[in-house]
Each structure stands twice: as structure tokens, then as C-alpha cells.
């Protein structure tokens, strides 16, 4: 893999990790989901896609993942054109997509299993990530024995275990209660700060988007275009409760709400 390694200094000049150029998607049957989307996703940052339901967020994420083909335009990741799924991208599915007949350990190790990693090595890696997402002790449990939030974390651990540079997260916190959600959001911030990975994140929650994102892309109603890009200027080093009461946080939430309101008629 000939990945371009950035040698430039300075955290502000994040180069794009994922580039989307002129992307359109018309589903067979004529639904036009995306129309001429051009976007960059900066390396090491978390970019959120926010927009009305059915506007094409999942579609965009799946095209970036190489799971469905685009009708026009192209996507490149780390400078290489996307033609299918690749080892540098990992998907966290909204519906978890866990194998019900496999233990937590095998589920988390499944990406590595498909890559042909040896059993001992992949299980050691999986155990590390299970611990990282706070599921130590549940290695031998089956998905149906876990709560929704725990399953969500299994899906996250599976994506982390393959050590991809780009994490594609489709409403990863949709299935959990508010308390768990806030805990996940804080964990996510730590993950973004710690690993230098690039995150593409989809959510329906404006508050969540503002809280976790370096950049927020507002999409218009179908066929989707980029209507606005917002970079919340929030001091990340504050404790969570202070962030949620920070004026920049509150103002950004309001700004986005005003921006999205017009799609509600």
C-alpha cells in the first residue's frame, strides 16, 4: 500500500484523507439520492454528516466504503481511487451486523479472521479491543445475551480491531439510551484525540454532532447536496459538562438547527 505520509507540521493543516468529487447516486428505479457532492474529510479529524432523514447519508458512507457503486464522480482514500472495500477503511454498522452464532470474541476478531490472520494473533488483538470498549469479561457471551449498547460496542471493537485508518460510523449510537450515549460520545472524543484516525460519522442528533465533530457537513434534502460546512470552534480540553454549557456549543447547535429547519417546511 502506497500511502502518502504527511511530513508537514502543525495540527491546523490537516490534509484530506477521504476526497469525494462530483459524486452522484441514482438507485435503480430512479431514486436520486446524491447529486454532485464534492467534499473533503480531513485526516485525523471527525467529520459528521447531518441532514434530513432519507437524504442519502448512509448512501454516501456506503459508497465511500466501496459497498455500493456511485453513478457518477469518484471517491479516493489516502490518494487512491475507491473501487471496493479496502483494508484502510472499517465500517461500524447502524444495526450492529453481528454474527448471532459467534461469541463476542469471534465477532470482534471476524475482520481479522477474514483477512487470514492466525487464530492466536487475532484473538489477542480482539481481546485488547474488547477491553478497550469496556466489555472485558464478555468475550464468550453471544450477541443475544448483550444489551443494545453492548452490541454497539462489539461492532465498534470489530472495526477498531482491523486497525483501519478511516472509520465509517453510521449512526453508531442510535440504539442506546441517553446516558450510555453520552458516555460513548466521550469515549469517541478520546478515540479521535488518541489515534490519529479519520472518522466519518453519521448522526441524527444536532447536539451529538456539535459535541463530537471537528467538522459538520449539512446535507440538503434528497437529492442531496452539501448545503453548509460548519467547524465548531469548541475548546475540546474542557470537561464534558462545561462543553455542553459553552456558548460556542450552544450557538453552533442553534445555527445548525436554523440551517436544517428550512428542510422541514
Amino acid at each position: 500500500m502506497n500511502r502518502v505520509v504527511a511530513l508537514r507540521a502543525g495540527p491546523a493543516v490537516a490534509e484530506p484523507m477521504v476526497e469525494v468529487r462530483g459524486l452522484s447516486k441514482v438507485y435503480p428505479g430512479g431514486v436520486e439520492a446524491l447529486s454532485d457532492i464534492t467534499l473533503n474529510f480531513p485526516k485525523g479529524k471527525l467529520t459528521t454528516l447531518l441532514g434530513p432523514s432519507g437524504c442519502g447519508k448512509t448512501t454516501l458512507l456506503k459508497i465511500v466504503a466501496g459497498l455500493i457503486p456511485a453513478s457518477a464522480g469518484e471517491v479516493s482514500v489516502g490518494g487512491r481511487k475507491v473501487t471496493g472495500p479496502g483494508p484502510e477503511r472499517a465500517f461500524v454498522f447502524q444495526d450492529f451486523a453481528l454474527l448471532p452464532w459467534a461469541t463476542v470474541l469471534r465477532n470482534v476478531a471476524f475482520g481479522l479472521e477474514l483477512r487470514g490472520t492466525g487464530r492466536w494473533e487475532r484473538e489477542a488483538t480482539a481481546r485488547r479491543h474488547i477491553e478497550e470498549v469496556g466489555l472485558k469479561g464478555f468475550e464468550d457471551a453471544y450477541p443475544h445475551q448483550l444489551s443494545g449498547g453492548m452490541r454497539q460496542r462489539v461492532g465498534l471493537a470489530r472495526a477498531l480491531a482491523v486497525d483501519a485508518e478511516v472509520l465509517l460510523m453510521d449512526e453508531p449510537f442510535s440504539a442506546v439510551d441517553e446516558q450510555t450515549r453520552r458516555k460513548f460520545q466521550e469515549d469517541l472524543l478520546a478515540l479521535v484525540a488518541g489515534k490519529g484516525k479519520t472518522f466519518l460519522f453519521v448522526t441524527h442528533s444536532i447536539e451529538e454532532a456539535v459535541y463530537v465533530s471537528n467538522r459538520i457537513v449539512l446535507l440538503s434534502r434528497r437529492p442531496s447536496r452539501v448545503s453548509e460546512i460548519i467547524e465548531p470552534d469548541i475548546p475540546r480540553d474542557l470537561p464534558p459538562d462545561r462543553i455542553r454549557r459553552h456558548s460556542a456549543y450552544i450557538d453552533t447547535v442553534e445555527e445548525i438547527w436554523q440551517g436544517l429547519k428550512r428542510y422541514l417546511e
Binding site: 477503511r89 472499517a90 465500517f91 452464532w101 471476524f110 477474514l114
Partner: peptide, 25 residues
């Protein structure tokens, strides 16, 4: 189909997806 899609996204070959996802399901 969501499990099959998961298999593809984690780079499973067709044979692997049949053996490890489709048949057990």
C-alpha cells in the same frame, strides 16, 4: 443482507462469505 454487506466490508472473499456468513445464517 446486512451480514453479507458486513462480510464484504471486512474484505471477505465470496467463498468466505458463503462459508462463514451465508451458510450459518
Amino acid at each position: 443482507s446486512s451480514l453479507i454487506e458486513m462480510g464484504h466490508s471486512f474484505l471477505g472473499s465470496r467463498r468466505q462469505i458463503i462459508a462463514k456468513v451465508i451458510l450459518p445464517a
